[in-house]
Design a protein around this nucleic acid. Structure first.
Lengths: 107, 107
DNA sequence: ATAATTTATCGTAATATTGCGATTAAACAA
DNA sequence: TTGTTTAATCGCAATATTACGATAAATTAT
């Protein structure tokens, strides 16, 4: 027990949940919002911006990168992060699809 | 440590994260999808439908209810759950707003 | 009254997440 | 070379989540 039973659900359900879970932390919301505005930035910018420790920001960036929402490119001695437009749109479509499944019928 | 620093973020960021976190589990995705289709159902239907234990479904329903996405009304000896249209739309708007913050500029 | 149905809650075990200090490794500047 | 900047990773402690059996409480059926 304590481990999610992904075997009981469809791939789409698991994928939707994975995306939502990654967005389910205010620091990661703040990171993608900042990237959406500023277009690209580095770890230390976010440390300043959010007020969390460097190691913590790095961990959140890793998770966002793992799920594909952001991407990082080496920029000299630093790492430049930005939103991955393709994955961003994919996430948007998946979530929009979920919300459109309900046609606001009365209950 | 181990506790999310909600004090560092805006109310909107925390609210967005809260909604996303609740949707960040395949069982809860499956529940809202089922409710979106079937309009209303009871705990035992979901136990059949999803294959999780009754206590587990009950717990997921409670979390969805706490965040306001679904609502329950007593129906004799059972509890009828359905989507809360107002909150549903609010969640949709919040998430749509997040995804629209990014204008697909190159990075 | 008794039995069956239904669901919430409790208690518990397994696992996951969050946060951060410390360390490491790489690029860059002097 | 030496020192600085940058970020990934490790290790750990605190907390949260997930799942489920067992129990309790309420309604309905016989």
């Amino acid at each position: 027990m304590g481990v999610t039973r992904t075997d009981l659900f469809t791939e789409e359900q698991n994928e939707l949940a994975k995306i939502a879970r990654i967005l389910g932390h205010p620091a990661r919301i703040a990171i993608v919002q900042h990237l959406a505005r500023i277009n690209a930035c580095i770890n230390s910018d976010l440390v300043q911006e959010l007020g969390l420790a460097q190691a913590t920001i790095s961990q959140h960036l890793k998770e966002l990168k793992n799920v594909g929402i952001i991407q990082g490119t080496v920029e000299g001695s630093s790492m430049s992060y930005c939103i991955n437009p393709t994955k961003w749109n994919e996430c948007k479509d998946l979530l929009t699809g979920l919300f459109d499944e309900y046609k606001n019928e009365c209950c």
